[in-house]
Amino acid sequence: MSNFIPYGRQDINQADIDAVIDVLTSDYITQGPAIERFEELVANYCGSRYAVAVSSATAALHISCLALGLSEGDVIWTSPNTFVASANCGLYCGASVDFVDIDPTLYNLSVQQLENKLSAAAQLGKLPKVIIPVHFAGQSCQMEIISSLARQYDIKILEDASHAIGARYCDKAVGSCQYSDLTVFSFHPVKIITSGEGGMVLTNNTDLFEKLTRLRTHGITRNPRLMREISEGPWYYQQLELGYNYRMTDIQAALGASQMDRLETFVDRRRFLARRYNQLLSHLPIQLPLQHKDCESSWHLYVIRLRLPELSKTHRQIFEELRRANIGVNLHYIPVHTQPYYTDLGFQRGDFPEAEKYYSEAISIPLHYGLTLEQQDYIVDTLKAIVR
């Protein structure tokens, strides 16, 4: 098979194209009705009261931290097994960052490590203001336990669900915010649905919603109820705080809304392919991704871990042989605390050993809606040949 098989990619159909064309030939291509429609579709699907569309999930994380009041002197905790944006968002606000090591089987933030670290931090008077659990690969963290711990210590929760639209936890959609203050989604092209670039914040809190809508638009409001002085006319607006230009366009929102029509179809296909991988790879010297009984993953990623003591090749050799076979494997993620920027802040290798061990063994193999059974069989056969 000569064609390159990417680890993830978007699926765009004629309905998506038509939705974008409709916007391009309408009166609005930015800041129009398509954005509100997209927000309503996602909020209704997830069962949250509010949704705020923005230009990226990174922007969503940033304004979420700001809306929660994060500032200099505060601390956030997140997982080291994530993209750097999950941690950087705290630094953008002047706060500092720390990490909680991962569960060795689920690869999400470990609730046992979190409990231990919170207990120690409470004794030192150094509790975080915000915890950012990351729903790695589309599987929710154990949010009921995390929420209970956060309430005990009066800590805010921001769910980084960039991987997890379409996932469920305890029979509720991820994004319902039952166990958090805010939830963030990503609509990058490799995610479950796409708006090209884009993100969204969900919440059930009216005050947070109003603040988020201001922060994405320069801190500006046109709502007379929120103004500090009486409105001077229908043209009038006030800047209430320092915000940003983090707005999504109608073009992007139209694509995202159209993609929402197929969200369940996308997730069902990913779950089918994941089950098939589980069957076809079950006898190889690799650890397959495990699922917690309370979770239904949306399967953004399918990650295998190599049992290196049983193999005659190194992690890098196997990765590079798969790439040479035109299989677009990837590695999610390099532990954030080992990045040079973070080692300059004082972190070092050995700080979070489970995340580091995971990194030394993990490979993300292709999983996306358009992956054919022929391609999946080729991936499996190639992997078998390489590891045996």
Score class of each variant (00 low, 15 high):
332 H>G: 06
331 L>I: 13
300 H>E: 15
337 H>R: 02
336 V>D: 14
316 R>W: 09
301 L>M: 15
327 I>N: 03
339 Q>A: 14
332 H>W: 11
337 H>A: 06
302 Y>T: 13
324 R>M: 12
323 R>M: 07
345 L>N: 05
345 L>V: 01
303 V>Y: 00
340 P>D: 10
301 L>N: 15
333 Y>N: 14
333 Y>G: 12
320 E>W: 03
324 R>Q: 14
305 R>W: 04
338 T>M: 10
320 E>K: 01
337 H>Y: 08
327 I>Y: 08
312 S>V: 06
341 Y>W: 13
339 Q>I: 14
327 I>H: 04
300 H>G: 14
341 Y>M: 10
302 Y>V: 11
333 Y>R: 11
302 Y>H: 13
320 E>V: 02
331 L>N: 13
330 N>F: 09
336 V>Q: 13
306 L>A: 01
300 H>R: 14
324 R>A: 14
332 H>V: 08
301 L>C: 14
311 L>D: 00
342 Y>T: 03
326 N>W: 06
344 D>A: 07
300 H>W: 15
317 Q>F: 05
314 T>C: 01
338 T>A: 09
310 E>I: 06
346 G>Y: 08
308 L>W: 03
300 H>N: 15
339 Q>M: 14
335 P>H: 12
337 H>M: 00
312 S>C: 03
333 Y>K: 11
329 V>A: 03
308 L>V: 01
342 Y>W: 02
343 T>L: 01
346 G>D: 10
347 F>C: 06
330 N>C: 07
343 T>E: 08
309 P>L: 03
332 H>N: 10
332 H>I: 06
303 V>Q: 11
316 R>E: 12
345 L>H: 01
311 L>T: 01
335 P>T: 12
333 Y>P: 13
329 V>E: 04
344 D>R: 04
309 P>S: 08
303 V>T: 13
329 V>S: 00
344 D>W: 04
324 R>E: 15
303 V>L: 07
307 R>G: 10
320 E>T: 04
343 T>Q: 00
313 K>V: 05
326 N>T: 09
324 R>Y: 13
301 L>I: 14
345 L>Y: 07
321 E>V: 07
310 E>N: 03
347 F>R: 02
323 R>N: 11
339 Q>Y: 15
308 L>R: 05
337 H>P: 06
329 V>C: 06
315 H>F: 03
319 F>Q: 04
312 S>I: 05
312 S>G: 08
327 I>V: 08
313 K>S: 09
336 V>Y: 12
322 L>N: 09
328 G>Y: 00
313 K>H: 09
327 I>T: 09
340 P>H: 06
305 R>V: 05
304 I>S: 12
301 L>D: 15
311 L>P: 03
301 L>G: 14
308 L>S: 00
345 L>T: 02
344 D>L: 04
344 D>F: 08
344 D>E: 10
344 D>K: 07
314 T>N: 03
343 T>N: 00
346 G>R: 04
326 N>Q: 11
314 T>H: 00
318 I>Y: 03
314 T>E: 08
328 G>S: 01
336 V>M: 12
322 L>W: 07
319 F>M: 02
339 Q>D: 15
311 L>G: 00
304 I>V: 13
347 F>W: 07
313 K>I: 02
308 L>T: 02
328 G>L: 02
316 R>T: 10
315 H>P: 03
328 G>D: 02
340 P>K: 07
345 L>S: 06
322 L>I: 07
340 P>I: 05
